[in-house]
Write a protein that binds this DNA or RNA. Structure first.
Lengths: 249, 249
DNA sequence: CGACAACTTGACGGGCGTCAACCGGAGTGG
DNA sequence: CCACTCCGGTTGACGCCCGTCAAGTTGTCG
């Protein structure tokens, strides 16, 4: 899986998207075929690469084929807020299909490969194939549900619960797509990035994680996370995965 | 406009929705006609009425015809987070068209009248009329964009900027649909509700608003808000309305 | 006039930010 | 093979913003 030649990547890039859409709506084989036939271009980028810049008007939308990415906004004060983390298979900027100007940045966190698809091609596909439109729409709705939970997270929970919740969500999402479970998981974020996501400083993230580690809850050996007591972590977070609207496994 | 008989209300209920959808996508007259032909039922409810309860499986989705409402979630600790405010013409729970179980509560803030439409009818309409689906999808995307801004708001801004930002957003949205501008505006929220929306306590909201009032920025004479220095308020908030993706007036 | 909800104000304390120093591993170049 | 650098993690001291608790005021509705 690690070493793919160009042809393999070409295949798998859209396959992961097609698989995702199949879980979201009741697609016919003809729908799948149309998705696989979409013209796209692959791009390999380094970590920290800016894929979409706030204020611009994208003409393509992009999928994350491999690696990790995030979306973020910056306040007038210069402080940065990460609004979502993304893993392989995620659609990164679906919103720009229908919204003219980007309201946030999209940036890679690790080495990554992304697939770019022209907006017009996607739009035509979704207009000709109502169930594909519905799958994409549903993906946007799940996106929105996760944002609501993040508002709750930064708005009402204390530091321990915030970080625990972010870890629970990330572990759940990784597990759902076969990227490993809570017992051992790639967690390629710096403590500063975690802080930017939950509204804390890197210093306080460090202190809080240290407490959780000393309590025997979790173990963070860069870049891996091990959760030793999954149910205790969920309880500390007040984590209820309903809001992820994950298809039943 | 205040006193409508049943027939007038029946007309206007779906007209406001149709108008909204027209702004979101390029609808044909036939699309509009189909929207207006949707079967629905009107309901008048008091303030504080729960329209959708978290964890249930709604079979209808509802539009806000008149009055004010909000959506909120509660943390394990019992603290409440309001994730959005809504005004007349808003679609309140579009997400439940495609998502089975509700991940948050929908509640009125004032006396209100809402229109309920059966999920299946809405779904069929959106499947038969791609541009209607696209309008609804775009509404969901704008919804998501506002959530992202709220994450930034509660995650990175201090009390003054948070409250100022919430006021700027609310005034902008009201103005966009003709409900009055910053100079004089109905603001039917208690300070506790404002606090639940921006992640502060009612006490601190009170203190912060008092400072803004004494600085001559705003005036809050329940239930009205007057903004005396609109550009200063925007500056204090770091408010940039791009994220609202409002159609050009 | 009494009841109740919302607003207001003060005192006090704590969670988290800020600043700053130090550590430790990975990559780099001599 | 070892210095050097750099980034990220770690720890301590200190202070402030905002939460908590509590009392009092105002306005509205019965």
């Amino acid at each position: 899986v690690k070493r793919l030649n160009v042809h393999d990547k070409t295949q798998s890039a859209l396959q992961s998207v097609a698989r995702k859409l199949q879980l979201l709506a009741d697609l016919e084989p003809a729908d799948i075929a149309e998705v696989m036939a979409l013209p796209f271009r692959l791009q390999s980028v380094g970590s920290g690469h800016l894929l979409v810049r706030e204020g611009t008007r994208p003409t393509e939308c992009c999928f994350l084929v491999e690696g990790y990415a995030c979306r973020h906004k910056v306040a007038r004060s210069g402080k940065r807020q990460i609004v979502s983390f993304h893993i392989a298979g995620d659609i990164l900027d679906l919103q720009h299909l229908l919204l003219e100007t980007a309201d946030h940045n999209v940036q890679t966190i690790t080495l990554a490969t992304v697939a770019w698809v022209d907006k017009q091609h996607m739009l035509e596909l979704s207009r000709n194939r109502p169930m594909i439109a519905e799958a994409l729409w549903k993906d946007s709705l799940v996106d929105g549900s996760v944002f609501r939970e993040w508002v709750l997270n930064v708005g009402q929970r204390d530091a321990k619960a915030r970080i625990a919740h972010m870890l629970c969500e990330f572990a759940s999402r990784c597990e759902a797509v076969g990227l490993g479970g809570p017992e051992r998981l790639l967690l390629p974020f710096t403590q500063e990035q975690i802080g930017d996501a939950v509204g804390l400083t890197n210093v306080h993230v460090n202190r809080t994680i240290a407490v959780m580690r000393r309590a025997g809850l979790i173990e963070v050996q860069r870049p891996y996370l091990r959760v030793h007591d999954w149910s205790a972590l969920q309880k500390m977070a007040g984590f209820d995965p309903t809001y992820l609207h994950q298809a039943a496994a």
